[in-house]
């Protein structure tokens, strides 16, 4: 079996990568903390952060487990719908809404994972895509999602009864904190023994099996973790956009997260974040080029696959012989 990404074996020195990554992480955090005073539009950054967390969760599967899920949007969207419904109809507190949303995505991840990991490679992608389309149709027809109208005007409320999420600056720091927490969790998983086994499965599954690892368990666990974190991104998105809609469960969204990760760099720690900011900026600031958005996205796909499969961050890391 061929290796999925060339980013994996970029660095052989064991201590240097961690140092590079931590340094980058600190710079990134400092930049993000400074956003509200930078004059950058906070809602744009919040959107991008949600997308980035979603892409990081997705990257955990493809970049480290070698599993390309082409239906990851359902996890984003499921949490979105459940959180929005819980906040609006059941009027629960924001923290409970987030928990419910993430729980729903995780549960869906268990079910989907159990079916999908029965096949490898390309089949895995097609199965996740088909399952996501199945879930999409269920949401389309379920009354609580309000079909095309979506769940609108979701109240933001007060987190832990005292943090006022209606204030954009406060909301920004909450979203940032959740993003950093999610990002850190993913980073820890990648560098844990669990992550090492996952990488070994990506590189050579039969050998991992012969070493005595129950690879299916690891793959399932990675899938569930990824689904749950994608759900966390979806739940946060509800607070930012104040609505939940069908677009977040549609396959185009699944394609978008693949694009983000591919552009940023499959299997790099920071690639998905960079990719998310680029794609989010494209959607927001190229809005007047509307009709060409699809074509531009397609072109990026083609260029990435043909010329720089490492993605932006992967190429930079490769050039500077760093680990990012």
């Amino acid at each position: 079996m061929t290796t999925l990404t060339t980013n994996s074996i970029a660095n052989s020195k064991p201590t240097a990568p961690v140092r590079d990554e931590i340094r980058t992480f600190i710079i990134l955090t400092a930049l993000l903390v400074a956003v509200p005073i930078s004059g950058l539009y906070p809602f744009f950054v919040m959107n991008a952060l949600c997308l980035a967390l979603f892409a990081c969760a997705f990257n955990l599967l493809i970049g480290y487990g070698g599993l390309l899920s082409f239906g990851h949007a359902v996890f984003l969207g499921t949490a979105g719908y459940i959180t929005a419904h819980a906040l609006k109809v059941w009027t629960v507190s924001p923290e409970l809404g987030i928990v419910l949303g993430v729980a729903a995505s995780t549960a869906l991840g268990v079910v989907t994972g159990l079916v999908a990991i029965r096949r490898q490679g390309i089949y895995f992608s097609m199965i996740t895509l088909a399952l996501s389309q199945l879930v999409y149709f269920i949401y389309l027809e379920a009354p609580f999602t309000h079909g095309e109208d979506g769940i609108q005007g979701v109240p933001q409320g007060k987190l832990f009864a005292f943090i006022d999420l209606t204030n954009p600056i406060v909301l920004y720091y909450v979203v940032l904190a959740v993003f950093l927490a999610g990002f850190f969790l993913i980073y820890r998983s990648i560098n844990s023994p669990f992550g090492e086994v996952l990488k070994s499965i990506r590189e050579n599954e039969p050998r991992a099996i012969s070493l005595g690892y129950k690879t299916d368990h690891y793959k399932l666990l990675a899938f569930i973790l990824s689904a749950g974190l994608a759900g966390l991104a979806g739940a946060m998105k509800v607070f930012v956009a104040q609505n939940a809609s069908l677009t977040d469960v549609y396959w185009t969204m699944s394609g978008e997260v693949v694009l983000i990760t591919l552009l940023g760099g499959l299997g790099t720690v920071f690639g998905p974040v960079v990719g998310a900011f680029i794609i989010a900026a494209m959607q927001e600031y190229l809005a007047s080029f509307g009709q060409w958005v699809l074509v531009i996205q397609g072109t990026i796909f083609v260029i990435c696959v043909l010329t720089f499969r490492r993605g932006i961050v992967g190429e930079v890391a490769h050039y500077f012989k760093m680990s990012l």
């Binding site: 290796t3 992608s125 693949v258 699809l294 074509v295 397609g298 072109t299 990435c304 696959v305 499969r309």
Partner: peptide, 23 residues
């Protein structure tokens, strides 16, 4: 290369074709 790159490339081609025809 891995199969997945073929999937991604053809996905990109599909987006371009559909986008151009739509325009």
């Amino acid at each position: 290369l891995d199969h997945l790159y073929g999937l991604l490339l053809t996905f990109g081609i599909a987006l371009i074709l559909q986008g151009v025809f739509q325009n």
